[in-house]
């Protein structure tokens, strides 16, 4: 009786093994395809397409707001506008160690990080602490209407000054 049923289902009595293998292949294959699809879909879903984050380009106003030999912190934008002897430049205020916001210490004339104690000169060079790199310089230029603009997205490879 059982053999007859098997024959009816499979056609021949010898195909139990191969149909099981076929079934397993089909099953594993479809699970693998579904898994790959879910991974792609999940990655796409978890990466936001629109970000409501502030623009990387900061309008720092007229350059005469920054007198010679001064360091002006902008904690909101996370940067320092420094007017040194060679001109105006901008340093990122984000510590290169683990991303804390550093603080300008006017009484010491240095930049210090409150999280893990890194210290920097006003040209970004590290004095001490766990920070692996100096504070990066940010691209700074004058707009057509004479305002200082700063791009926070890409650190500069070489030092650049805005001379007035």
């Amino acid at each position: 009786m059982a053999d007859e049923v098997k024959k009816q289902i499979c056609g021949t009595g010898a195909c139990t093994e191969c149909s099981r293998r076929k079934f397993a292949k089909l099953g594993v294959g479809s699970i693998a395809i579904a898994g790959a699809g879910s991974t792609v879909f999940g990655y796409a879903f978890l990466s936001p397409n629109v970000l409501y984050e502030p623009s990387p380009i900061v309008d720092a106003g007229k350059p005469d707001r920054y007198p010679p030999d001064s360091v002006t912190p902008d904690t909101q934008s996370g940067l320092y506008i420094v007017h040194g002897p060679e001109g105006i430049y901008t340093l990122s205020a984000v510590c290169t160690h683990l991303g804390c916001l550093t603080a300008w210490k006017p009484e010491l004339g240095i930049i210090a990080c409150p999280c893990h104690g890194s210290k920097f000169h006003t040209d970004g060079v590290k004095i001490e602490g766990p920070a692996p790199r100096p504070l990066p310089w940010l691209k700074t230029w004058l707009s057509d209407d004479g305002k200082l603009l700063i791009d926070r997205s890409e650190p500069l490879e070489q030092k650049q000054f805005v001379r007035i």
Binding site: L46, S47, P48, L51, E53, L98, G99, C100, L101, C115
Partner: peptide, 28 residues
Amino acid sequence: WAITVGSNILSAVPLLGAKLRFLILGGH
């Protein structure tokens, strides 16, 4: 600041670090 520090530790993962940080924070 704890999460800023923690998520920056995550970005030290080789190759995938910055991407993982972006995914866990849902932004930069």
